[in-house]
Simulated scan of single mutants.
Amino acid sequence: MLYLIDKLMGRTRVTINENERAIWFYKGEVRGILGAGEHVLPNRRNQVRIERIALNSAAFVSVYEKALFEKAADQAEAQLTQYRTGSDEIAVIECDGRIHSVLSPDSKLTVWTDAGPWKADVIALEQDPVIAPALLQRLMKAGVASLLSQVRIVEVDKGQVGLVTVDGRMTGELTPGVTGYWMVGQKVAVKIVDLTRQPLDVTGQELLTRDRVTLRINVAAEYRVVDPVKAVTEVKDFTDALYRALQYAFRKTLGAMTLDQILESQVTVDAEAATKVRSDMAAIGLEVTDITLKDVILPGEMRDILNQVVSAQKAAEANVIKRREETNATRSLLNTAKVMADNPVMLRLKELEALESIAGKVDKLTVTNGTEGLMNDLVKLSGD
């Protein structure tokens, strides 16, 4: 019966559920927004059209938004809430206590009011691009890619420092911890600098000595950054600068020396080269501690020649020592002979020692004419 009456009256009834809203049109023109409940609408010649929208999307996105605020402003303002940001502002939009979205500068967001409650926190970027720690934690816990795409998260470990530049201007240093920056409307860059001691090896460097011998050297150094601002701003890459300084210093120092000088005084070479390197690196904020010339590598043919020279030197030294010992032995025999010549008793004792030595090497010894005769016979035998 109600249906017949509505049809005769040229109207229709529309029911909207609690979890949805609807935009209604009459003769193709936007007329307003329908809330939850039953609505009676004019519908002559079936000119009414309904466009239903689910509230679970929360954000209102429609090509009819402008028309609604112009032709049905009261209904639009009752059902929808708009948030806008200026050219230097960011807005964090919360829905029912949870972060819903982040508005970048010069942006607009329209939401269904009944999908809330809603809250907006507007942040001026010119004041500070750093995200408050509590808000950063909430953004990270939300884990929404669209939110984090507008955030730069920087983690600085213990023993490090972070140098922050905003739009090319250095603004400060970061201590160990996690810091977040808004990455909209500005360019934020962070350079992490390690402040701990670090090794640096310069290997396989070829150079020519003063006597035209080609060598390869390996150098090891240890350094740490004491002024991170200088280390980053004075040179493009402070590690590369140290590498080149070590390379140049050792080339210059060793190139002015002969091979023999290099092999005999490596410690002196290190000290001379290290003084120059430490002075240059201190100017860019680096403290260089240990510098060591680890290896001096000769070409194969030069190594063979050097081995021959060493062998000859050692053979000559051995021959000198042998001749010296022979001379000492001869001098000792001469002294002994002089003592025996001046002392017959000593000569007799030596004869007895010789007889004892001979007796120890034979099984049987017969003495026929006394000890004196035996000694005389031995002397005769020796003479023959």
Rank of each mutant, 00 (worst) to 15 (best):
S382V: 09
I217P: 06
N343V: 01
Q75N: 01
L200A: 07
V154E: 15
I291S: 04
R152K: 14
R278I: 06
N328M: 07
T209G: 02
V14E: 08
I358D: 07
E234M: 14
V156L: 10
V345K: 00
A72T: 09
T233E: 15
A245Q: 07
G159C: 07
E65L: 05
L349A: 14
P42F: 11
M281V: 08
Y223D: 03
F60C: 07
V102G: 04
K119S: 04
D280V: 11
V193E: 01
R244E: 10
V151S: 06
S149D: 15
R49N: 12
V144K: 15
R13K: 15
R244H: 14
L246E: 00
I297F: 03
Y248Q: 12
R244A: 13
D237V: 06
D295W: 01
D237C: 01
S57D: 12
P117V: 04
D240G: 04
A189Y: 05
L352E: 12
L306R: 07
L374E: 07
A145R: 08
R324N: 11
P42S: 14
P117Y: 02
L208M: 09
K236S: 15
G285M: 00
G373R: 04
V178P: 06
M257T: 08
K276I: 15
E70A: 12
E317W: 03
E326I: 08
D167V: 09
R152P: 11
L163C: 03
V130R: 15
E173V: 15
S149N: 13
K187L: 12
V188M: 12
V267H: 13
V226H: 03
R169A: 13
I153Y: 04
E264I: 00
A76I: 04
L286V: 01
L174I: 10
V226A: 05
G162N: 14
T110F: 02
A273E: 00
A142S: 05
I153R: 11
L8D: 08
V202T: 12
A134Y: 06
K141Q: 13
K380Y: 10
P228L: 00
I23E: 09
A256T: 15
G10F: 14
E89T: 05
T15R: 09
V219F: 02
A189M: 09
L135Q: 09
K27M: 13
A283V: 07
P117F: 04
G168V: 15
T179N: 10
L242E: 03
G86Y: 11
N17S: 07
R98D: 10
Y83R: 06
L55Y: 11
